[in-house]
């Protein structure tokens, strides 16, 4: 078992391009520790400023539909059953049975062992490679703690991919990251990314969960975002939703700034997924404003932006119903989750 990496890291295309051919822990550390520090006060003030926009009428209607369209409808409970996953899928396809104009969500997000039930329930609505349809996302790598050996994490990932998952939400090893072993975290992400490759050569999209609630500082969030992107993440994601604080607007803004910088540097577009704690449409709209103002409106598609949420959709539906009928709706008119 290798704990340190004196000889170098696993090759990852992006990191090799940025840091040079012989990828070493030192090179990685020099890069990550050399990132400029985050102005925490400025960041929070900017996020607060972005929260003051008033989004009304047709803009609000567009925002509400965009929230649904970019939502990963999630159930990650120990008590999940195939039946619960099936009803989640039904809701993902038809969020509001009283209004057929309601768009479907982007994906359902479940534990790895629930993937076959989600795939089966989706049937022809399951996205197959293209942009139409609903994706199945699976959390893997000993979610939510990430405390398991690499072999287990890889088996967990392969299992979910083989079962038909289109997207893998992995957690980073926060313990290794916080104790400065960036190479360990890097290698694990690279290995999981390889485990996402299907026999036909295509690969499941990899979302890397930083669990920002455990990273203590904004500087760490920035480093972890860079680390995940360098190691090959398709998406970076704030949280598991099992740790408080989960997604916050400042953290999301900071991660979007890293994505913006990466795009300016390389032209590549990395996706972003805030998850956990976003329950009100009003909050979600603030995230959309932040995306549009930081990386641009072209990020507001399900290929580059997701909300990880379980109860957010219900609140959005209540708002949609209010806009459609002209009177306030209530929880009796949406599903009980």
């Amino acid at each position: 078992m290798t704990i340190t990496h004196p000889l170098g890291l696993q090759p990852a295309e992006r990191a090799v391009r940025l840091l040079g051919g012989d990828l070493t822990e030192t090179a990685l550390r020099l890069h990550l520790d050399g990132l400029t520090g985050v102005d925490a006060v400025g960041l929070e003030q900017r996020a607060a400023g972005l929260s003051t926009r008033s989004i009304k009428t047709s803009s609000k209607a567009w925002a509400l539909d965009t929230i649904i369209r970019t939502c990963d409808l999630t159930t990650l409970e120990g008590a999940d059953t195939p039946g619960k996953v099936r009803s989640l899928v039904a809701k993902a396809i038809t969020p509001d049975a009283s209004d057929p104009t309601t768009p479907s969500v982007a994906a359902v997000c479940v534990y790895g062992d629930m993937v076959p039930y989600a795939v089966e329930a989706l049937g022809s609505r399951h996205a197959t490679g293209g942009t139409e349809g609903i994706q199945v996302a699976a959390v893997a790598t000993a979610f939510p703690s990430g405390r398991a050996s690499l072999a287990i994490k890889l088996a967990d990932t392969r299992d979910a991919v083989a079962a038909g998952a289109d997207e893998i939400d992995m957690v980073i090893d926060r313990g290794a990251f916080l104790s400065g072993q960036y190479g360990v975290v890097f290698d694990q992400i690279v290995a999981v990314r390889e485990a996402c490759i299907r026999p036909d050569g295509s690969h499941a999209h990899l979302k890397v969960i930083l669990e920002t609630g455990e990273l203590q500082t904004y500087d760490n969030v920035k480093r972890a975002s860079w680390l995940a992107i360098l190691a090959g993440a398709d998406f970076i994601k704030t949280s598991t939703g099992k740790v408080s604080p989960a997604a916050t607007l400042p953290v999301t803004l900071l991660m979007l700034e890293v994505i913006r910088d990466w795009h300016r540097l390389t032209g590549e577009k990395i996706g972003m997924k805030p998850a956990g704690g976003i329950r009100a449409s009003k909050d979600a709209v603030r995230y959309l404003v932040t995306v549009a103002e930081t990386v641009g409106e072209e990020w507001l598609t399900s290929q580059l932006w997701r909300f990880g949420a379980s109860s957010l959709v219900n609140d959005v539906l209540l708002q949609r119903q209010k806009m459609r009928t002209g009177h306030y709706s209530g929880p009796d008119y949406v599903t009980v989750d």
């Binding site: 009177h327 306030y328 709706s329 209530g330 929880p331 009796d332």
Partner: peptide, 9 residues
């Protein structure tokens, strides 16, 4: 009128 039409009242 808002309370009378409110679906959660």
């Amino acid at each position: 009128p808002w309370l009378a039409a409110h679906a959660d009242v």
